[in-house]
Nucleic acid binder design. Structure first.
Lengths: 154, 154
DNA sequence: TATTGTTATACTCTATAACTATA
DNA sequence: TATAGTTATAGAGTATAACAATA
């Protein structure tokens, strides 16, 4: 179960606006994941490749951007490197550092996944006019501005 | 990492509308979870109590509503029963069945969690007028109607 | 034989800390 | 000593199947 947002296929969306948002977010995420796996990548691998598109980067910094532990990134990169989608190169300036770069094969794999994501979004928001999309984006953005209030917690 | 929606605290929301939706949904879910845990319950236990409010129910049916495996529900109910928030009673009509019911302590625990959820939603959507809330609800509902197209997948 | 609840097992994820090699 | 990357280990969560009691 996806915890608070269970029952994705059930016809019973939650009533609370917050849970409703989490629910639709979870459904969307699931759909996007499926699209990626169809394109041959896990979400993690895809997100990693996306970040690599900005240019070579050390594993530490990459792990921070992806919000994964460096030890987790090792496994992701092993996979990507094994499939020839990314490469690790020792940084001559600091031989401790591995600079990670996307390969041509990686770029073309990424292009495929982007196409798959486009398709999903097109379908998810097919009932949306451009105005609707903008409206949703704006509303979501207003939630975000509130996010700051909650850093502490437990 | 929450997979596709990593970096919740980072100031870098994704650009794609689909990923943006998943991202905000994930943030919201995280906040709601925190509120629940502050109220002393895990999301699972809280959701279970919420379903129990509709009246006693067999574990099979309850597991279906929660979209968890019956074997998982066993653990949840063991916890809830241990804390006196729910009880299992053999159904005299069919002695295989356990009818699960919420206790008074469970109801009051649930009331606390609902108050906590109210507070989070109030904060998350504090910049929202009633119209905005309705607009968001409507937009989200339009996504849902599209969901059917995607049952197959992989 | 089918069904309800339970237990057991294996598999994935995640979080933590120890380890190496460089600095 | 501190840092970059790696490895190892333990914990939570999930999925699956086997199981006992009852129908």
């Amino acid at each position: 179960m996806s915890d608070m947002t269970a029952a994705q296929d059930s016809p019973h969306p939650p009533q609370r606006l917050g849970l409703l948002l989490a629910w639709h977010g979870s459904i969307t995420e699931t759909r996007m994941k499926k699209a990626l796996s169809t394109a041959g990548l896990t979400p993690r691998h895809a997100m990693t490749l996306m970040h690599l598109e900005d240019g070579p980067i050390g594993q530490r910094a990459l792990a921070e951007r992806l919000e994964v532990d460096p030890s987790v990134l090792v496994g992701i990169l092993n996979d990507l490197e094994g499939e020839g989608l990314a490469v690790r190169r020792r940084d001559p300036a600091d031989r401790r550092r591995h600079n990670v770069a996307i390969t041509e094969a990686g770029s073309s794999a990424l292009a495929k996944t982007n196409a798959a994501l486009d398709e999903v979004e097109l379908s998810l928001f097919s009932a949306f006019s451009q105005q609707d999309q903008d409206a949703l984006r704006t509303l979501l953005g207003r939630i975000d501005s509130n996010a700051e209030h909650f850093e502490c917690g437990e």
